[in-house]
């Protein structure tokens, strides 16, 4: 969710950090002011009236934050706008930060309260981190990955690249396939439109090298991307290799080689997309499990505190 679409990413991230600090400082300041006015003690005692009240408020914050899960599961019900829900999720989550500090009396307490608090802080900061990533990475993806696809489907869509590359290579080195009319979009969007031939474009040792290149380098890279450890993962190295290919093949086949290079470039973009997507969504691997654990521990802590303390 963008904090402000009209501002730069840096401004948005900075304003997020400053906003977090200000909300925290304001909450602690209010608590301190109340203590100075004699309403409660300072530092607040977790088991004192104010500390317990903060605890209840905090429990409310946590439970509200966790409501986003059923909201996602039941998104078809359209309970309020997603954007509004997310705004509240963020704002109330940030309010939880001063609440937890004041409730704890700026201490950790025993193992259970300490774990609950540490989890809460991790959840909050992972959420802030995720929000910061969202201010920055989507624009970068748009800029650096013009062939953006659905990040989670890159492995499947990469098979299309493999198939297309295989067809292109066969057209260069196989007579029977040369006759097939293959519609292959070029970089400019125009159809390659090769005329049917009876002779393969690439023959002899060059054909062997081409097939070897396809088997050892091209297919593994298009299929598995960086994980294939192919040299084609490097843009510079890829340019060199394709330049060598161009020297080997006749002029008529250069357009097909260009297309193969385009496919590699697309695969490289998807690698970048995957990496950025990991940063964009990876924080959820911390945020959600810790939220669940923290909520359980919070309930245990609340029951124990209210029953025994």
């Amino acid at each position: 969710m963008l904090v402000s679409s009209s501002q730069s990413a840096g401004w948005r991230v900075a304003s997020l950090a400053i906003g977090t600090f200000l909300i925290t400082a304001a909450g602690i300041g209010l608590a301190y002011l109340g203590a100075r006015l004699g309403y409660w003690e300072w530092p607040p005692r977790p088991s004192g009236p104010f500390g317990v009240a903060c605890g209840f408020a905090l429990a409310g914050v946590v439970l509200f934050e966790m409501l986003i899960l059923p909201r996602k599961w039941c998104r078809g019900w359209r309970l309020f706008r997603t954007k509004s829900w997310m705004k509240l999720h963020i704002l109330i989550g940030l309010i939880g930060l001063p609440l937890v500090l004041v409730h704890s009396g700026f201490g950790f307490g025993g193992p259970l309260p300490a774990a609950t608090m540490i989890f809460f802080l991790l959840v909050t900061f992972s959420g802030i981190w995720g929000l910061a990533m969202q201010q920055w990475l989507p624009q970068r993806i748009l800029r650096e990955v013009p062939s953006e696809t659905i990040a989670t489907q890159t492995e499947q869509t990469a098979q299309n690249l493999v198939i297309e590359a295989d067809k292109l290579v066969k057209r260069l080195s196989n007579v029977s396939l040369v006759k097939e009319a293959v519609r292959t979009p070029s970089k400019s969007g125009r159809q390659a439109g090769l005329a049917p031939r009876l002779e393969p474009l690439v023959v002899g040792p060059a054909a062997v090298i081409l097939r070897d290149f396809q088997t050892r380098q091209l297919e593994p890279y298009l299929s598995r991307g960086r994980r294939s450890r192919s040299r084609l993962a490097s843009r510079t190295e890829a340019e060199k290799q394709f330049q060598r290919l161009r020297h080997m093949v006749p002029d008529e086949a250069e357009e097909i080689v260009d297309r193969l290079e385009e496919l590699c470039d697309q695969r490289r973009q998807w690698d970048t997309l995957k990496r950025m997507n990991a940063w964009l969504h990876g924080w959820l691997l911390l945020h959600l499990p810790l939220s669940v654990a923290m909520t359980v521990l919070m309930v245990v802590h609340a029951i124990r505190a209210l029953k025994y303390w």
Binding site: G282, L288, V296, L297, V300
Partner: peptide, 27 residues
């Protein structure tokens, strides 16, 4: 495709279940 889980989603929920069980175990 969106009906099928991706790795991030799978791990997200798997870790959540682990965290839930671990927290309950602790309690």
């Amino acid at each position: 495709y969106y009906r099928r889980g991706d790795s991030v989603r799978w791990w997200k929920y798997a870790l959540s279940v682990v965290a839930f069980v671990a927290a309950l175990g602790w309690a």
